[in-house]
Write a protein that binds this DNA or RNA. Structure first.
Length: 604
RNA sequence: GUCCCAAUAGCUCAGUUGGAUAGAGCGUUUGCUUGCGGAGCAAAAGGCCGGGAGUUCGAAUCUCUCUUGGGACACCA
């Protein structure tokens, strides 16, 4: 990498300057070479400013000395400005890089940071109790893009969806399916309390009624609910997979939560922790306690959201005089943690029989999270195992990380990213979605109005840390004005040029070297060469929105080049150089679109 | 109460290891076409980077604090 060897040259120059006493023999901090922020500058270092204090010399003078001691190099020029040492890559170096892209197009954009390592991205992973909602759209698009990214970094990559098919919600779902199934066959069955009211459940149940007939009405009800529940999950997953396929998302595996219990992995993980003394009993329930300390009182108590908010406002106190006192009491219950010290993580893994009679439903989600993390990292060797979670799981992050530590998994092997939920707007009003109450909006509902590429672009275009509004009334408009088309347009334009070169036999000398001359050519090449750095940035931060910014900037750099540097009617050598540059731009546009999971149209 | 996230141009948002004149899209105003695809290019206007303090040669970025908005904190799923 050019960056590494410029850094090495810098260190050498500094050492030489110190040897000849032009710079005092002070300790040199690690040299950081940043991307240039000024036009025409590829890299810059502020080392001279950092040395100003210890050397008692003005930064500009130090920078000047450094430049003097840098050996001549055909690949770059160095210049001291404002105390910075700026490096500009030479036209010959930039041209050679373009040739390199064209020589091995399939390698372009790949990096080596993950070579020889296995990684997993687990995303999607919603309860299999309904079709894929818009909300999960952000999850799968972000997850899929991160998976593409780690793959580009050289990881052997595995894409997984975790099916929460254990626990009591599955029974409620089964009962809902059963009721709808019976209704479809003309027999009235009431929906269970807190049942799933959505049309999707009706649809899946009717299909089952059609394909299976009335056999489940004849068998004992418990059995029918259980079996129909499993069939219902399968039906929902089939539908979800079809939606994912529309979004160009594929998985290597759908992992069953239930299987963790059937294979004994759940019990094994708990036993491992028990042997370490981290499983503690409290009020008949089993808890994981990070440091084995007894369970703090107050936690086991059922609380409502009002209990947490100290702001029992003045009005509220007037209406409910008891509220204020209640708060005081509850605050007492919560044992104060030592100041400046986080309390140890303590979380229920197995509910008490007194509270949940059914033994199959006593394990909590967290109880599955432990063996699942173990399975990913220790059994299957994924490092990192990336989890993509919605913000409703933010409290689980510390727990799972604590569990991973307790299980002895290597630091950093479990990486969890939390994305903020999107807000849905209809008629300017926020739409609250819920699968249970049956007003969810499915991804399939909007893909007709908004193309897959535009949908993915919207889901990717903002940092996962920010929530954003998805206006259901403006879908068409959001699609039409979507920046993805600008990016794709650049790609299609280049394809068009290449077609015409062929078909109309323009005089183009493709063996002429890439000669970078014009401002827009320099800018375009520099932008192209950023691709591997962007890939590494996305992989490191697990923030895929950087692609959308980069893709637009790249397309813009191409447009300016297109405007300034004509290929048609240029001398054959110039035309050849420019056509090669355009082709490298096409490959780079295609690569970044592919990373984002979008199509690369040759005509629009 | 504790924790997480956000606050940057009229609107929607970028701003990776602290660095040079804080950027883009949309919107507004104005130019560019007998040019390889005008879904384009060029330009203008528009900013106490929520407030305050601190660290630093240097802060939108780091620390503390306050304000505002969203979310999480169950033997729910």
């Amino acid at each position: 990498m050019i960056r590494d060897y410029i850094t090495a040259d810098l260190a050498q120059a500094l050492a030489n300057a110190q040897r000849s006493s032009e710079i005092p023999a002070v300790e040199i901090p690690p040299i950081q070479l940043a991307r240039g922020r000024v036009q025409g500058v590829d890299y810059a270092t502020s080392i001279a400013m950092q040395l100003a204090r210890t050397t008692r010399m003005p930064p500009a003078k130090i920078a000047g000395i450094i430049v003097k001691y840098l050996a001549e190099n055909p690949d770059y020029t160095a210049e001291a400005i404002n105390g910075y040492v700026n490096f500009s890559l030479s036209a010959s170096y930039l041209g050679a890089q373009v040739e390199k892209i064209l020589a091995e197009p399939s390698e372009w954009g790949k990096t080596k940071s993950g070579l020889g390592k296995k990684a997993q991205v687990e995303h999607g992973s919603a309860n299999p109790t309904g079709y894929a909602t818009i909300g999960s759209g952000r999850n799968v698009v972000v997850g899929d893009t991160l998976a593409n990214t780690l793959e580009a970094c050289g990881y052997e990559l595995h894409r997984e969806w975790y099916i929460n098919d254990a626990g009591s919600q599955v029974r409620v779902f089964g009962a809902s399916i059963f009721a709808r199934y019976a209704q479809a066959l003309g027999r009235y069955e009431p929906m269970p309390e807190k049942g799933y009211q959505g049309d999707d459940v009706i649809e899946v149940a009717s299909e089952l009624a059609k394909s299976k007939g009335d056999v489940y009405l004849a068998m004992p009800r418990e059995q029918a609910v259980r079996e129909l529940g499993l069939l219902g999950i399968a039906g929902v997953m089939t539908h979800i997979k079809a939606t994912l396929a529309r979004l160009n998302i594929r998985y290597d595996n759908f992992f069953s939560e239930k299987s963790l219990y059937e294979t004994g992995q759940a019990a094994a993980a708990v036993e491992l922790l028990r042997a370490k003394g981290l499983i503690v009993e409290h009020d008949g329930a089993q808890w994981f306690s990070e440091d084995g300390s007894p369970i703090r009182s107050g936690q086991a108590r059922k609380r409502t959201s009002e209990d947490y908010s100290a702001a029992a406002s003045a009005e509220q106190r007037l209406i409910e005089p008891g509220a204020a006192e209640g708060l005081v009491e509850r605050d007492d219950l919560q044992e104060p943690a030592e100041k400046g010290k986080k309390p140890p993580i303590q979380v229920v893994i197995m509910r008490s029989a007194a509270v949940i009679p059914n033994p199959e439903e006593r394990a909590t989600y967290f109880c599955s999270d432990l063996p699942y993390a173990w399975n990913k990292v220790q059994v299957r060797g994924f490092n990192p195992a990336v989890y993509v979670w919605g913000e409703d799981h933010q409290a689980d992050v510390d727990r799972v990380l604590a569990g991973a530590r307790a299980l002895g998994l290597p630091d950093g092997a479990v990486r969890i990213i939390i994305y903020r939920f999107i807000t849905l707007l209809r008629g300017g009003q926020e739409v609250r979605m819920g699968k249970r109450i049956g007003n969810a909006i499915w991804i399939d509902d909007v893909l007709g109005d908004i193309g897959v590429d535009a949908f993915r672009y919207i889901m990717l275009s903002r940092s996962v840390d920010t929530k954003f509004a998805f206006d259901l009334d403006l879908l068409k408009e959001q699609s039409d004005t979507n920046p993805v088309y600008y990016v794709q347009y650049g790609h299609a334009r280049i394809c068009s040029i290449e077609r015409r070169v062929q078909e109309e036999a323009w005089p183009v000398n493709m063996s002429a070297p890439v000669a970078v001359r014009m401002t827009s050519e320099f800018a375009l090449v520099r932008k192209l060469l950023e691709l591997p750095e962007i890939v590494e940035t996305v992989a490191g931060l697990l923030q895929p929105h950087h692609y959308t910014t980069y893709a637009r900037e790249l397309a813009q750099a191409f447009s300016k080049f297109y405007d300034e540097c004509r290929i048609k009617d240029s001398p054959p050598d110039v035309a050849g150089s420019r056509l090669k540059l355009a082709r490298a731009a096409r490959l780079t546009l295609a690569k970044v679109l592919a990373l984002m999971g979008m199509s690369t149209p040759e005509r629009m």
